[in-house]
Amino acid sequence: MGAVIGEVLPLALGVAISPIPIIAAILMLLSPRARVTGVGFLLGWVLGILVASSIFTLLSASLTGGDGGPQPVVGVIQLVLGALLLLTAVRSWRGRPRDGEEPAMPAWMGAIDKMSLPMALGFGFLMSAVNPKNLLLAASAGLAIGSATSDAGSAAIAIAVFTVLAASTVAVPVIGYLVAADRLRGPLDSLRGWLASNNAVIMAVLLLVIGVSLVGKALGQF
Rank of each mutant, 00 (worst) to 15 (best):
P97R: 15
P97W: 13
R98G: 05
R98D: 02
R98F: 01
R98Y: 02
D99P: 03
G100C: 04
G100T: 08
P103Q: 11
A104E: 11
M105H: 02
M105F: 02
M105C: 02
M105G: 00
M105S: 06
P106K: 12
A107M: 05
A107N: 03
W108P: 01
W108M: 07
W108V: 02
W108I: 05
M109G: 03
M109T: 06
G110A: 10
G110P: 00
A111M: 07
A111G: 05
I112E: 00
I112T: 02
I112W: 00
I112Q: 00
I112N: 00
I112H: 00
D113E: 12
D113M: 05
D113A: 11
K114N: 04
M115H: 01
M115R: 04
M115I: 01
M115E: 01
M115G: 01
S116I: 00
P118K: 10
P118L: 01
P118F: 01
M119D: 07
M119F: 00
A120I: 02
L121Q: 04
L121G: 06
G122A: 03
G122Y: 06
F123E: 04
F123C: 03
F123V: 05
G124Y: 08
L126H: 03
M127D: 02
M127F: 01
M127P: 00
S128H: 03
S128V: 04
A129Y: 01
V130F: 04
V130W: 06
N131H: 09
P132A: 11
P132C: 10
P132K: 15
K133D: 03
K133C: 01
N134C: 04
N134T: 11
N134H: 09
N134W: 00
L135I: 12
L135K: 15
L135Q: 14
L136V: 01
L136P: 01
A138R: 12
A138L: 08
A138G: 06
A139Q: 05
S140A: 15
S140P: 03
A141S: 10
A141D: 06
A141N: 09
L143R: 08
L143H: 05
A144E: 09
A144S: 12
I145E: 12
G146D: 07
G146E: 08
G146W: 09
G146R: 12
S147W: 02
A148D: 06
A148T: 10
T149I: 08
T149W: 03
T149M: 12
S150G: 08
S150V: 07
D151P: 02
D151R: 13
D151Y: 02
D151L: 04
A152H: 09
G153C: 06
S154T: 13
S154P: 07
S154M: 08
S154V: 07
A155L: 13
A155F: 12
A156N: 09
A156Q: 13
A156Y: 11
A156L: 15
A156T: 12
I157V: 15
I157W: 12
I157A: 14
I159Q: 14
V161T: 11
V161M: 11
T163V: 15
T163C: 10
V164C: 14
V164E: 14
L165K: 15
L165H: 13
A166V: 13
A167Q: 13
A167S: 15
A167N: 12
S168M: 14
S168N: 14
T169M: 15
V170Y: 08
